[in-house]
């Protein structure tokens, strides 16, 4: 079920401060965040975030049409390297 509109978008509060700080200082600095659950707000556009996927910080350059999605959507947590070739075929 979708989130109620009256609640507004969910964002962990400290991200706002971090984003502002990054804006003030020089650009092209990756902001490391763990908050995959936060919604991407319009004021984050143009910044680069390093979204933690449990192992690494995946750099995410926020563009305009990402607004409204969550950070976690851009930082996959699973790696699928494909199925191994068949055992029998290897042996033979």
């Amino acid at each position: 079920m979708a989130r109620s509109i009256w609640k507004g978008p969910f964002v962990d509060g400290y991200l706002l401060g971090k984003a502002d700080a990054a804006r003030e200082s020089k650009r092209s600095e990756i902001i490391k965040i763990w908050s995959r659950r936060s919604t991407i707000l319009p004021q984050f556009v143009g910044l680069t975030f390093g979204v933690y996927n449990g192992k690494k910080f995946i750099p995410v350059q926020v563009s305009e049409n990402m607004v409204g999605h969550k950070f976690g959507e851009f930082s996959p947590t699973r790696t699928f390297t494909g199925h191994s070739s068949d055992k029998k075929a290897k042996r033979g």
Binding site: N65, G72, E73, F74, P76
Partner: peptide, 12 residues
């Protein structure tokens, strides 16, 4: 296409 270009989970 929008989802795929964004490289979000749904796009993948």
């Amino acid at each position: 296409k929008r989802l795929m270009d964004m490289a979000c989970y749904r796009g993948l």
